[in-house]
Design a protein around this nucleic acid. Structure first.
Length: 284
DNA sequence: AAAGACGCCAACCGCAAGGGT
DNA sequence: TACCCTTGCGGTTGGCGTCTT
């Protein structure tokens, strides 16, 4: 017996939101701010569960939501970030201002995954290109062909995972992907300036568009990808990001303030005595 | 024109983390 | 330490519009 759904209470509305409900929710959040979602429906006078309200606000009603089609630039970024991050939709969405994780997830499942699958099929002539109609990712409505589904748990990132990196930051100040070594390098990490680097990239440089692109390009070049399209050579990039720190000023550039904070957090983590985990999940 | 198949996407679900007590 | 509550995440579903036959 599973847990009763959050909207199972009798009398609560489900399904599509009416314009009237949207207005009530928008007005309430604009006045009282986000948060306290559980109490919100009662306070606002909505017959919805808090979870539903939160989702509606985040995916549809927020004022900074960008409407309209995904541009080619955005699409390219999604593809590259997915290659790097896997199905970390919220992280990918964080790099596309105004886009939601749900929107990107849908766009990926309905457009990009099929297109990439088809192009892969073209690259390997022995493989038959399957009918895209048989490849809907999750509907279960039309999957006549069996296919492998890579599933990941929905988890929040709570630990910073430190890669084993070359200790040559001092000699190579220019952006360069560090190569994992057999031993974690403690000497470089003990030095203060190491905190300015992230996998061999200058953290300040990573906050610019060009450097981020360079970073993504080099990640793509890092050896084989696994079946999920994620580099096996390094753990997913997101594993290096620490949780956001509140009340710090962001940094302008392609990255969003929270991402800048993530890098800042990593930088401070490199100098901390907190838990260290290598790419093999071993504490050095 | 009608019916079935298909595609898209908003919304829902279950799970996990983190904070509070 | 254990439990509860809140929040956030990715996977999945259902409804509706469009396309095909």
């Amino acid at each position: 017996m599973g847990r009763t759904p959050c909207c199972a209470k009798e009398g609560l509305n489900r399904g599509s939101w009416s314009a009237w409900e949207d207005k009530i929710l928008s007005n309430y959040v604009e006045v009282h701010g986000e948060g306290k979602w559980r109490d919100l429906p009662q306070r606002a006078g909505l017959k919805r569960c808090g979870k539903s309200c939160r989702l509606r606000w985040l995916n549809y009603l927020r004022p900074d939501i960008k409407r309209g089609n995904i541009s080619s630039e955005e699409e390219e970024l999604i593809i590259r970030l997915h290659k790097l991050l896997g199905n970390r939709w919220s992280l990918i969405a964080g790099r596309l201002p105004g886009r939601t994780d749900n929107e990107i997830k849908n766009y990926w499942n309905t457009n990009l995954s099929k297109r990439l699958q088809a192009s892969k099929g073209q690259n390997s002539p022995n493989k038959k290109v399957e009918n895209p109609k048989n490849q809907t990712s999750g509907t279960g409505k039309s999957s006549a062909e069996p296919h492998t589904v890579i599933r990941t748990k929905a988890v929040r990132l709570s630990k910073v995972i430190i890669p084993r990196v070359q200790a040559d930051f001092d000699e190579n100040p220019t952006p360069k992907m560090a190569v994992p070594t057999s031993e974690p390098s403690s000497s470089a990490l003990e030095q203060g300036e190491t905190a300015n680097f992230f996998m061999g990239f200058d953290i300040g440089d990573l906050l610019t568009s060009d450097a981020l692109n360079s970073f993504l390009d080099q990640d793509e070049e890092m050896g084989e990808n696994n079946s999920n399209g994620v580099s096996d050579h390094f753990p997913p990039c997101s594993d290096f990001f620490a949780p956001e720190i509140e009340n710090q000023e962001g940094v302008s550039g392609l990255l969003q303030p929270s991402e800048a904070l993530e890098l800042k957090t990593l930088a401070s983590f490199l100098n901390s005595d907190d838990e260290w985990i290598t790419e093999n999940n071993q504490v050095p």
